[in-house]
Simulated assay, not measured.
Amino acid sequence: MDIDAIIQKISIWALPVLLAIILHEVAHGWVAEKLGDNTARWMGRITLNPIKHIDPFGTILIPLGLAIMGSPFLFGYAKPVPVDFRKLNNPKRDMIWVALAGPVTNLLLALASTLLLALVIQLPTALFWIIEPLALMCQASIIINMVLCIFNLIPLPPLDGGRIAVGLLPGPLAWQLSRIEPYGFMIIVALLFLGVFQSVIGPMVMGSSYWLIGLVLPV
């Protein structure tokens, strides 16, 4: 991929990726605060200021590397918002709602992007110079938000799906699953490297994304 194509791809994907990963984390902190834990608020993480959320590796290097390699879509993550589950009103139950907040936010953003795409393509054709980049950004937003929604629902700690599973499972099983968390990131990297996640969730992500886009644009 030449440098112009890389710059063009970054210009289309940068804002949707930043909004998707930042609002995902803010949602965790906001719901935790409503349920009794103000750790994220105290640490200044319930904010849209990207500086507070940027992780050099997950927010910059991974998306940039994917763009350079010509990946069909970009992916990234922000610094996790700190949550002290012991401070929640009902730790086991409320853990589920805090974890769900991120993926649900991404789903809502994907739906909002679909609606925005429908509005963009109704603009007068004289505004073609703004219609195309906005339409591409809306489509990028749909894809990245569905990636984050579905990927994070995998029932493996420390992903949100893992925390949801820990909250739903009975005590002994929840404890056994929670013990995986220190090794969770390494397991995720290994499964990504082996292509397991791509083959399992890839069709779900692209299928749901293209279905939403297809509601607005003919495919």
Score class of each variant (00 low, 15 high):
H24T: 10
V26Y: 14
V26W: 05
A27F: 11
A27D: 13
H28I: 11
W30P: 02
V31I: 15
E33F: 12
E33A: 14
K34R: 14
L35H: 07
L35P: 10
L35C: 11
G36R: 06
D37N: 10
T39W: 12
T39K: 06
R41V: 11
R41W: 13
W42T: 13
M43S: 02
M43F: 01
M43N: 11
G44R: 03
G44H: 10
I46A: 00
I46R: 02
I46S: 05
T47P: 04
T47C: 04
L48M: 07
N49P: 04
P50G: 03
P50H: 09
I54G: 07
I54S: 03
D55V: 06
D55H: 03
D55G: 04
P56Y: 14
F57H: 04
F57E: 06
T59E: 12
P63L: 02
L64E: 06
L64N: 09
G65Y: 07
G65I: 02
A67L: 00
A67I: 04
I68G: 01
I68N: 06
M69G: 08
M69S: 12
S71Y: 15
S71A: 14
L74G: 05
G76D: 15
G76E: 15
A78V: 05
A78H: 14
K79Q: 11
K79W: 06
P80L: 01
P80A: 03
V81E: 04
D84V: 03
D84C: 02
F85K: 00
F85N: 09
F85V: 11
R86W: 02
R86T: 14
L88C: 11
L88Y: 05
N89R: 14
P91Y: 04
P91S: 09
K92T: 10
K92M: 03
R93L: 12
D94L: 11
D94P: 01
M95W: 00
M95S: 04
M95F: 00
W97H: 04
W97D: 05
V98A: 09
A99H: 05
A99M: 01
A101G: 12
L109R: 00
L111S: 02
L111P: 03
A112Y: 13
A112F: 13
S113F: 15
S113Q: 08
S113I: 15
L116T: 13
L116I: 15
L117A: 12
L119Y: 08
L119W: 12
V120S: 02
I121M: 08
